[in-house]
């Protein structure tokens, strides 16, 4: 993955030299968020951000960190159950958007008789299977190939914290995201987290203090763009505070 220094404005066309050089000729060029193809062979940006290319995957996209979350297939999100219909739960991924549907049977081990009971306004950690551009978004809490939950399902207790979309991506990206905070904290502190690409972080640290400390620390790393050293310092500060 190469982060170029090309700052794009909507309507800028991408010069062929800036596009990834495919190592494998058979692989088609994939355009990610913020890029569109205008036939015959113009590629232009649609949003303001930084051009990022990945020559291994032969992909290019625009990286940005502002605006509302738009569901994309495969994304992990933390949704809020609004109402329960006959066959599915109506969930909100972000406020004031159309309902996303989460079937009653899309939970591990759920059958017609043992369907989960979720009250309104409870939280679910789920995966987007259909972003719903042409209809409504669809969600699931099981891996369709194995039928296992893989950590997805209703979130009980804990607290949610709002984080930027970029922070959510970084947290899910592992080492590449450059967030060492959670690892640092976990050496001394036991807690559970769930990261939603929709900019929601769920934390359960067992106690109010621990949960708040973890949640607020992540928010601080996000807002102040702390680097590795800064995060280490923050870990020490948080652990001392507890």
């Amino acid at each position: 993955m190469a982060t170029s220094s090309t700052v794009l404005l909507p309507g800028d066309s991408i010069s062929p030299s800036a596009l990834p050089k495919p190592q494998n000729r058979k692989k088609h060029l994939t355009l990610g968020p913020g890029l569109r193809h205008m036939p015959p062979n113009t590629i232009a940006s649609t949003i303001a951000g930084l051009l990022v290319t990945d020559s291994k995957k032969n992909a290019a996209w625009v990286e940005y960190n502002s605006g509302r979350y738009l569901p994309a297939a495969g994304d992990l999100v933390i949704a809020t159950v609004n109402t329960s219909g006959g066959e599915n739960f109506n969930c909100l991924i972000t406020p004031n958007t159309p309902y996303a549907s989460l079937p009653h049977l899309a939970f591990e081990g759920a059958t017609r008789k043992t369907r989960p009971q979720l009250s309104s306004n409870s939280l679910v950690y789920c995966r987007v299977i259909n972003p719903g551009k042409d209809s409504f978004p669809e969600l699931t809490c099981v891996d369709p190939s194995t039928g296992k939950s893989e950590g997805l399902g209703p979130l009980k207790g804990g607290m949610v914290f709002k984080i930027s979309l970029g922070m959510a991506r970084r947290l899910l990206a592992g080492k590449k995201g450059g967030v060492t905070l959670l690892e640092g904290l976990s050496e001394k502190l036991g807690f559970e987290v769930a990261i939603g690409r929709n900019g929601v972080l769920w934390v359960d640290g067992g106690s109010v203090k621990a949960t708040l400390a973890v949640g607020r620390a992540v928010q601080e790393v996000d807002e102040q763009a702390l680097g590795e050293k800064g995060q280490k310092k923050l870990v020490e500060k948080v652990l001392r505070g507890l």
Binding site: T80, N96, S120, N121, S122, K156, G158, V160, V208, K209
Partner: peptide, 26 residues
């Protein structure tokens, strides 16, 4: 359009925290 309601988790957590004399923003 309506204001999104707060989730049960948040509601419970805020109440729990208040009982322990803690506000979310300290």
């Amino acid at each position: 359009p309506r204001e999104a309601e707060i989730s049960v988790n948040e509601r419970e957590f805020i109440r729990q925290a208040l009982q322990e004399n803690i506000r979310l923003d300290g």
